[in-house]
Design a protein around this nucleic acid. Sequence first.
DNA 1: CTGATATTCAAGTATGTGTTTGAATATGTG
DNA 2: CACATATTCAAACACATACTTGAATATCAG
Lengths: 226, 226
Amino acid sequence: MKNLTKRAFKTELFEEFARIGKALSSGRRLELIELLAQSERTVEELAAETGMSIANASQHLQVLRSARLVDVRRQGTYAWYRLSDEHVLRLWLSLREVGEMQLAEIERIVEDFFKDRKDMEATTCEDLLKHLKTGSVVVLDVRPEQEYSAGHIRGARSIPVNELEARLKEIPKKKTIVAYCRGPYCVLADEAVAILRAKGFNALRFKGGFPDWKARGLPVERAIPP
Amino acid sequence: MKNLTKRAFKTELFEEFARIGKALSSGRRLELIELLAQSERTVEELAAETGMSIANASQHLQVLRSARLVDVRRQGTYAWYRLSDEHVLRLWLSLREVGEMQLAEIERIVEDFFKDRKDMEATTCEDLLKHLKTGSVVVLDVRPEQEYSAGHIRGARSIPVNELEARLKEIPKKKTIVAYCRGPYCVLADEAVAILRAKGFNALRFKGGFPDWKARGLPVERAIPP
DNA sequence: CTGATATTCAAGTATGTGTTTGAATATGTG
DNA sequence: CACATATTCAAACACATACTTGAATATCAG
């Protein structure tokens, strides 16, 4: 009898944990998590950025919500979704790391898509932190401004990549420029570096993204309090 | 066209990561991971410990294997399964942490089962490390010996809980005894502490288990090299 | 109140997953 | 070689999940 209840306990307990696994078992939902790791967003925005129908995005968000990975805040007719806890970001980064380490397919897919990245040097967290301290580089956040406002690397300037060409004069020609965006699978920083180099700047891409930086407990800043 | 391939890239990439999520989406598979976090095991052992049929356990192990979360080593007619990387352990601990933080149901299930735990003090990693350094406690690994051999807290002694009553004379009466087992959902250390206290020892349970200790990079030892 | 908008709900269909059962492999033993 | 054992495979079933469509809510502006 004790064994029976022990089995029931374990089954029930692990089935609960599996709710989180189930929430992570869809590529679409992982994409939503990756976006929400940048800043909170409405259903409409999330649907548009992931190419899903709104009803489908809403449904996926509710799966995430029932696993308590995301929270909603309602304002007027909008529902603003966000990750419910910083542990959720760590969980996603941890999953991403396992994927990068173990699944050869991921490396192949990424290399296929970013054909030019191989010969584009990138900076690590440690490097960047060191350079930031000495003030020897300019760090550029090239994500949309909303995401910058929601949180960015301390000391970084916001120039969204689509405004970059028009705002080149704000950038000092003599310093090294380090551009960052959402993370390793985001093209924004690559585009920014390409533009900057074409104009004669000495530009580098930061390997990670803002969420990676934040999850390591490195210094961040935000325009609007949470 | 660029947008189309960008969408295809993201869909494909996140679908790959979702393979790992899918592997984590079953309570049964999480239970297998929890067991494999202790030491490598055969299909038979895993099936017996989780109460699954052998065919079913084998099938779940193959799901884990195709997501590269576990590896097999074949020896004779036995297949020894183990976690394929230390990152997998971290991923599981990260998922566990999110569950414990976010899912109220988990707390309820655990409290229901461990009714007596409330009034049983437990030691944290930090405490235990401090005590280990000063030698003021005896640390007891009460898991089956095989798991102890595969790796244990440095300085711990192995006395499997089912041998404990017979081996009480090996334990100094005057020191505090800290017992640990597989983790917070394992009963072995609770049982050991109950036995020890009944015999007049001053005994405590360590809150985590060996995997938690190891994942924090704290000092470990192993009898048999990997 | 009416109309517009953002989101959610509900139903339906196609597809995928978990488990059991019994057979098939593959390795080691006498 | 024949046999025992550990594991895997294949088929069949019940059940769950993803996506689409169209309707239902809910909030705000006029």
